[in-house]
Amino acid sequence: MRYYEALGLEPPRLKLDAADLQKRFYARSREWHPDRFSTRPPAEQQTALEMTALINDAFRTLRDPVGRAEYVLSEHGLEASAQRGKDVPADLLEEVLELNMALEEADGEQAARSLAQFEAALAALDGQLAGLFAAWDAAPSPDNLQPVRAALNRRKYIANLVRDARKALETARES
C-alpha cells in the first residue's frame, strides 16, 4: 500500500501511533521536499515533487483513523461508502425521530439531549473501532476487515447525526 510504504510503515497496521507518524513525516519531508532539490536537474526536481506529494497525501490520510481505515478498505476493493444504505440503524430509530422533531420545532432542550446521545454513541463506536483495528492488525484477513467496514458506515451515519444535532442546537439558540 503506497501510503504506508511512503512513510516506511510496512506491513500496514490500522492502529498507528500519532507521534511516531509525525516523526516519520518530518524525516521523509526533510529527505524529499522540493526545497532540497532546487539546484538539481529538472528530472530530480520532478521526482522530489512527486515523492513529496505522495508523502503529504499519505500523512494526511493516515493520521486520521477514519481516513486511514477507509484507505485500507479501498485498497482491498471495499469502498466504504458503497454499502452505505439510507436505512436508519434500528437501535437509533427513536433517537433520530426525536432529533428530527427538535430540528423542526427548534427545540433547544431536545437538541441538546440528542447531541449528548449521539456523541456518546460516537464515543462508544470509536472504542469498538479500536478493538476491530487491533483484530485486523493481529490477523489481517478480509474476514476481519468486513466488521471494520460496517462500523465505519455506522460511524459516518452517527457523525452526520452529531452534526445535525449541533445545527439544531444552534438554530434553537438563535431563535
Partner: peptide, 8 residues
C-alpha cells in the same frame, strides 16, 4: 489546509 505539494 492540506500540506503542499498535494495531489488527488
Amino acid at each position: 489546509n492540506s500540506t503542499i505539494p498535494a495531489s488527488a
